[in-house]
Amino acid sequence: MTHAASPRTYVIVLLALLALTVVTTVVAHIDLGPGNSAVAMLIAVVKMLLVMLFFMHIRYEARLTRLFAGAGLLWLLFMIGLVMADVLSRNWR
């Protein structure tokens, strides 16, 4: 049996997630230039990590589980990275 987090932890995580939702909504209304997209994505990644680490028990699972959790994300980066490498440089001369 793996050890999981306590209900207390879950409550704290939930509060953090809700706070981050408010923050991301408010920040979106402030002009940060290109920074807006970056902040929005950064907050989303933090929220994802919170859910994965605590709700999905990645903190307590075997390394192998983390490997597969990471593999999907890494492959997504391959996809977005190489597609955007094409899209962004298509009109260079």
Binding site: F68, A69, A71, G72, L73, W75, L76, M79, I80
Partner: peptide, 9 residues
């Protein structure tokens, strides 16, 4: 779930 990441990805 890794396959789902690519599906939405």
């Amino acid at each position: 779930l890794a396959t789902e990441v690519i599906f939405f990805g």
